[in-house]
Each structure stands twice: as C-alpha cells, then as structure tokens.
Design a protein around this nucleic acid. Structure first.
Length: 574
RNA sequence: CGGGGUGUAGCGCAGUUGGUAGCGCGCGUCGUUCGGGACGACGAGGUCGAGAGUUCGAGUCUCUUCACCCCGACCA
C-alpha cells in the first residue's frame, strides 16, 4: 500500500444552498405520540426523517445532508490511515454464511431472501464472509499486508423490537471495516490505530465517547471495545472507575471481592427445618442472617439442554453473559420446576451440596469470600447452615460470573460507577475465526507457506450516531447541530421577504457558504421557531430593522449582533 | 418471543346506554396582520387498521387478524 498523505478540510461542505420554500420535508409544531426520545421527536418534527414501518426510516433531504456529512467525516478519517472504501452486494450468498455456521449463531436475526431461481441469500447484517470471500479469491501474499477495506452499506437486522427512532432500527447504514494482518502482533498495531481513528471520528462529530471494554461474544478475543456516548437513555450499561483508568461493559466488568467474615470459625454443616417462602428475602427473614451470607442458586438450561447451576453470594447477581461465556453456551433459559426436581432438588431450596455429577455447577469466585453460608437443602422446607466450599461441595467451573454493581471496587482499588450509553461504534478482534472456517482464506507468507489472515472488524452505525448527536445537542426549542454535521452552515431569515434576502443569499453562496434561506411568506415567529427546531448553528436575519447590516446569532447563544456582510463571512470562515 | 397498551382526517385527540363522525393543529382560497409559532371568513380532507359475526342498525358489542407503542431477552 502506498504511503500517500491524505488531506481534508475541517468542514464538509456540500453544494447547494436551498430555499426553504422548496425544501422537501416539513417541520411540525405538535408533539408526536408514542416515542419519548428527544432525538426521535426532534428529527421527526424537524423534517429530517420520516417513519416507514417500525425501525425503517426515510431520510428526508435535511436528514440526508446530515447523514452524508457524518459519512464524509468517517470516510476522511478512514482514508487518512490508508483504509479503502469498496462495496459488496446487498444479497450475500447463503452458502457463505453456512460456511462459517453463522446462519444460526449470529446474535442478530438474520434476514433471508430467495431469488427467482430459488437461490437463497442473506440480507447482510454484517459482511465478514463477503469480505473474506473477496479477499481469498485474490490469493495475496505477505507483501500485500496489512490492509483495511470498508464499506458504507445498508444492514438488515430483523430486530425483535425497534426502539427510539434511529436508536435501534431494522435497517440502517453502517460503516463496516475489516482489517487483514499477517499475525496477532501486526494486528495489535492495526487495532490501536483504529482505536485512535475512532476517537478522532467521534470527536469531529461532536461526540465524547468512552472506549468501553466489551464482550467478544462467541468469537471471544482479548480486543473488543465499544464506543459509548454517555446518556441516560442508552441501552448499554457499563462501569467507569473514579480514576478513569478502567471502563468496562457490565458483561466483562471485573471487581474486587473482599472477604466478608474471614475471622469466623468454620462450623459443622447442619440441616434444619425451614418453613419459608421461595425468595432470598424469605431466607433472610427466616434465619435472621445477612443476605450476603445466603447462597444464591440459579438453575438454567442452555441450547444443548444442559442443566447448569450457577451459585453465587446472596447479595450479588449473576451476569448471564459471563455465565454463557464460561459454559460455552449461546442461549440460556430458566430451568422449569420439573427440571429442577428431576435432579433431586426443589425450587426455592436449591443447593450445590450433593448435586455434583447431576448438574454442571458453576460457582462464582464470591463463594470464597464467605465462611458458613446458609441456603437450601434440596428439599421443600429444608435449609442447610454452615455450607462451605471445598468441604461440602465443589464446582465444575469456578469463575467470575457476577454482575458488577454501582460502588463496587475495581481491581486497582478505584470505585466503579454505573453509566449508561449509546453504542455508536465498536472495534473487535476477529483473529482467525473466519479465515480458519472459510476455505482458502490464506496468504503466502515469506517462508512460502499458506497462512490464514488475522482479522479485525470495525463498525459505526451512522443513523444511531446521528441520533446520539441530537440527544447531546438539543434544548427545549430544538436541535443545536455541531458545525461539522449541520445540514447547512447558516439559516438565513428575511423577515419582510425583500430584495435584501436574495442579495445576502447570493453573497454568501458566492463565498461557498451553505445557506438554508427561509424565503417563505411566514410571520417572523414561525420562521424563528423553525430555525431553532432545525438547529443550524448560525442564524442570520435581515429586515427593515437591520438595514444594510445583518443580525448574526448562534443557535447556542442568546445574544445577537449586528454585522456587515464582510464581518459575517469572516466569522463563518473562522 | 413473553408481558402491558394503542389503532377514528397529514399530526395530536374526543366520540355518552349501539342510532349513521367531531375538535385542535396543519392544508387551500380571500382579506386584515407582520421581529418569537396572528386573526377572520369560506373550503378540501374519513370505506373509524383489516376480516367475519351479533343486530332493524356497529366507531361503539363478540371473535379473528394485522400494524404500531411501551417493558424484558439481543446489537451499530
């Protein structure tokens, strides 16, 4: 790959000023029913997007301009590190997905479609197979490595539930990039570079993102990060340490466990009658002992119909993703009462004691922080006291399966705080996962041997990013677009619709400034309200009051100033 | 896929014991207004989500079905 230097201008400018009277898409005054999300409300009311069916949206000209600017910024940053844009077909031959066994293992719902000749295709939700298929037919050598190829394309995911306007949809445009390296060492550099690129991209888009350690799903891998925009309406839950050094998704968040009662002497195991209800609280009330001293038992069944008993300290919860990971499961469901009884236990009174061999016992590391647990005794209204790991039971797997909680202590001693965020991008180590499953996905190394590529993938959802920006940049009146993604640079209002508006418009256009010119025969109030709603960063007003000058006001500021045209142009080009 | 809810004009909604459909916004024409979503007059716009049933008669009652919204399990 050549070492070209890429240049870019800071702001993306598009051709075209626009008369508001001719703009397709209208603002609307009233609240929309249903969705309570700021971004959904404002983007719809502002005439940026329009719903088609649940989770599928029209992008109207105003919204598409924003989308295009986001796209261009991403493209500039990707190209700047030598990544190359291409495009794959929308319909992916289903055989490719079968080759990697992803027709049933993908996390999202795969959409399938049949052509007129009866061939099956997947409507791509991601495109690893397609890119690998393209790469393998080229028979490359180590001299061609590393490289990074990407596309912007429609992704289809048959989500069970779309939500929050553009925040979670069934069809969206994603930038997905795929890196091909010689080995893991080379990949680590690529990964670090992509992490930097992502931070730069989101920064230019006006978003402060947190790089959050995340779960690699069924592929695993050490390198997996989500880029989260902190927001109370976000679906992602993660933890940030007070010193800022540790940021991790709840599915991977590690925390320190202090011994609860290290100085207590180990007592003899004994069974007692316990006529109580089935909940943890019932246990606490019956025995008058603290919740943390109770043993929590949680029986689930995975997709292979394997019974799994998760055991954890009473004051903690099991994180299902962690549990899936340590047991190698894709899917978990609660065990039925019959299933619990089938191995000789009893709902509400489950205990690992005596169940070894009958069920796969997964013990959380917290079991070693308590001496003399109490809990069920695998029989109705029977409890056991002084249960101790190793002496009374052992685990098939002992691992961290606990859900982190606000206030937990990170391994470095810093306090962890719970946050919510909108996941706008992710970067992910694929390793040899695809290149080992797909035949011939190899390059010729320096020693003349065929070796599989070491891959990574990197995604950004454009519509969701747009929604995240609106969530961050809005007030009661409407949107306040960052300059970098605003649909136009200025919103020109001519109150009396005089010649002056046309004049100013022409001058700005000549300077290459994108203008949305509200030329409608509307009252001033209506024009101002629409300008605030649409959220273009600078509003210019001409009227009999301003005379030869122009009123300049930034959307984010309450104050306006009277400037000459030259001063306005200078300010806009700052 | 489980739980809850809603479908009536472009949008937001009302519609009583079953009696033949209305309000606000928006839209069109005309007039008066004109720097923070003006006002008046006139007007257009509906097989009441769809299908079946009960009834002399269904927006309203019953069943079926579809769509959408909200809460959970998954993801950019």
């Amino acid at each position: 790959m050549s070492k070209r230097v890429f240049f870019y201008t800071h702001l993306i400018t598009m051709k075209g000023s626009m008369k508001y009277s001719k703009l397709y898409g209208k603002t609307s005054k009233g609240e929309l029913g249903g969705s309570q999300f700021t971004s959904h409300q404002l983007l719809t009311r502002g005439g940026f997007i329009q719903e088609s069916t649940a989770g599928r949206y029209y992008f109207l000209p105003l919204g598409w301009r924003v989308h295009q600017k986001i796209r261009e910024i991403i493209k500039q940053e990707m190209d700047a590190i030598g990544a190359q844009e291409m495009i794959t077909p929308t319909l992916h031959p289903l055989e490719l997905w079968e080759e990697t066994n992803r027709t049933n293992s993908v996390g999202f719902e795969l959409m399938k479609i049949q052509d007129g000749r009866g061939s099956w295709f997947a409507l791509g939700g991601t495109a690893e197979e397609m890119f690998v298929d393209s790469v393998r037919t080229l028979h490359l050598s180590y001299k061609d490595l590393p490289f990074n190829i990407y596309q912007f394309s429609n992704k289809f995911r048959d989500e069970k539930r779309a939500r929050g306007g553009l925040l979670r949809v069934r069809e969206f445009i994603m930038k997905d990039a795929y890196s091909f390296d010689r080995d893991e060492t080379a990949f680590v550099d690529t990964y670090a570079q992509m992490a930097d690129v992502y931070t730069r991209i989101f920064k230019r888009l006006g978003l402060n993102t947190l790089k959050v350690e995340a779960d690699g799903g069924y592929i695993g891998g050490d390198y997996c990060h989500e880029y989260q925009v902190e927001s109370p309406i976000g679906e992602g839950r993660f933890f940030v340490s007070e010193d800022g050094l540790y940021v991790a998704h709840e599915d991977v968040a590690k925390f320190k466990l202090a011994p609860m009662n290290a100085d207590e002497t180990v007592e003899k195991l004994k069974e007692v009658d316990a006529v109580r209800g089935n909940t943890m609280e019932d246990g606490v009330a019956f025995h008058h002992l603290p919740l943390w001293k109770q043993m929590k038992d949680f029986m689930v069944v995975n997709e292979r119909n394997e019974l799994i008993l998760a055991v954890i300290r009473g004051d903690l919860d099991v994180n299902e993703t962690k549990l899936k990971k340590v047991t190698g499961s894709y899917q978990l469901r609660h065990a039925t009462e019959e299933e619990i009884r089938s191995i000789g236990s009893e709902p509400g009174f489950i205990s690992p004691v005596g169940l070894h061999g009958k069920v796969k016992i997964v013990g959380d590391t917290s079991l070693r922080t308590v001496i003399n647990f109490y809990g069920g005794a695998n029989a109705k209204h029977r409890d056991a006291l002084n249960i101790n790991i190793d002496r009374d039971f052992s685990c098939d797997i002992e691992a961290d399966i606990a859900m982190c909680q606000d206030g937990c202590i990170a391994e470095n001693g810093s306090v962890l705080h719970e946050k919510r965020g909108i996941e706008v991008g992710n970067i992910f180590q694929l390793g040899y996962h695809y290149t080992s499953k797909m035949k011939g996905a190899t390059f010729v190394d320096v020693d003349g041997k065929e070796k599989p590529y070491y891959m990574g993938c990197y995604g950004i959802g454009l519509g969701r990013t747009m929604a995240a920006i609106v969530e961050k940049y809005a007030d009661a009146r409407g949107i306040m677009w960052p300059k970098t993604v605003a649909p136009f640079a200025v919103h020109l209002i001519d109150i009396q619709s005089s010649e002056r508006g046309q004049e100013v418009h022409n001058m700005l256009q000549k300077e290459g400034i994108e203008v949305l010119w509200d030329d409608r025969d509307e009252r001033a109030g209506a024009k101002f309200a629409d300008a605030d709603l649409i959220g273009i960063p600078v509003r210019l007003v001409v009227s009999v009051k301003t005379g030869e000058k122009i009123e300049y006001k930034e959307r984010t500021s309450g104050e306006a100033q009277l400037l000459t045209v030259e001063e306005v142009v200078r300010k806009l080009k700052e």
